[in-house]
């Protein structure tokens, strides 16, 4: 099989639920979004809940939530986007990393209401249909993971890094990825995966 052509299905088969388990929930997101649309604009919020509107992976989301809901809880429990992992739940390990208006943030450590009116990109949003993002392909090809649980967060951090620095040095990668822990200690291969993805992007640009 040509490495370029790893499909989402084969990828999941190889990795279990780690990296791209993520993609499974897209259909459920659509369901949640359309449920949101059924609300009348003037409808009174349920007791102790407030209206939240934001964009998740390009889709408008509108729903009522308690103020205490974290962004990670919103994504995983309300929108069924379980690719985003929660490990420490204290804004320390990076497994929950998503992009908020283009910047990497710990979704477990900001409130869903902090994302009001903003755009959230999760690991599910990197897929184009069945096609993996070059970063996801690079993590497979370079073996950039062991158990895979930190991988969605690693990939989102890498995505934010490459967006800002398309041609990173190894030091840029170490610094840019510093907010993501890997308990398996796969750091050398994680860095190698990011570098490989940057190189393949550079090739695609030429």
């Amino acid at each position: 099989m040509a490495e370029k052509d790893i499909s989402r299905r084969i990828f999941i088969k190889r990795l279990g639920t780690g990296v791209a388990g993520s993609g499974l929930a897209l259909s459920q997101l659509s369901a949640a979004v359309s449920a949101g649309k059924d609300d009348d604009a003037g409808e009174k919020a349920p007791k102790d809940q407030v209206l939240l509107q934001l964009t998740v992976n390009g889709k408008a989301v509108r729903l009522h939530i308690p103020a205490s809901l974290t962004l990670a809880e919103l994504l995983r429990d309300r929108l069924n986007l379980s690719g985003t992992k929660v490990v420490c739940n204290h804004g320390e390990c990076g497994a929950c990393t998503v992009l908020l208006d283009g910047k990497a943030v710990y979704s477990c450590h900001i409130l869903a209401l902090d994302a009001a009116g903003k755009e959230v990109l999760t690991v599910e949003g990197l897929l184009k249909g069945e096609e993996l993002h070059p970063l996801q392909e690079a993590f497979v090809k370079e073996d950039g993971l062991q158990c895979g649980f930190c991988t969605p967060g690693q990939i989102m951090s890498a995505y934010a890094l490459l967006k800002q620095k398309p041609h990173p040095t190894p030091d840029d990668i170490r610094e840019g990825m510093a907010g993501n822990l890997c308990r398996c200690g796969a750091y050398p291969k994680i860095a190698q995966s990011v570098l490989a993805a940057a190189k393949s992007n550079a090739r695609a640009e030429r």
């Binding site: 804004g91 908020l100 990497a104 710990y106 450590h109 951090s157």
Partner: peptide
């Protein structure tokens, strides 16, 4: 200070 994700916030 902190990590890239925390510095963004």
């Amino acid at each position: 200070a902190a990590s890239p994700q925390l510095r963004n916030v």
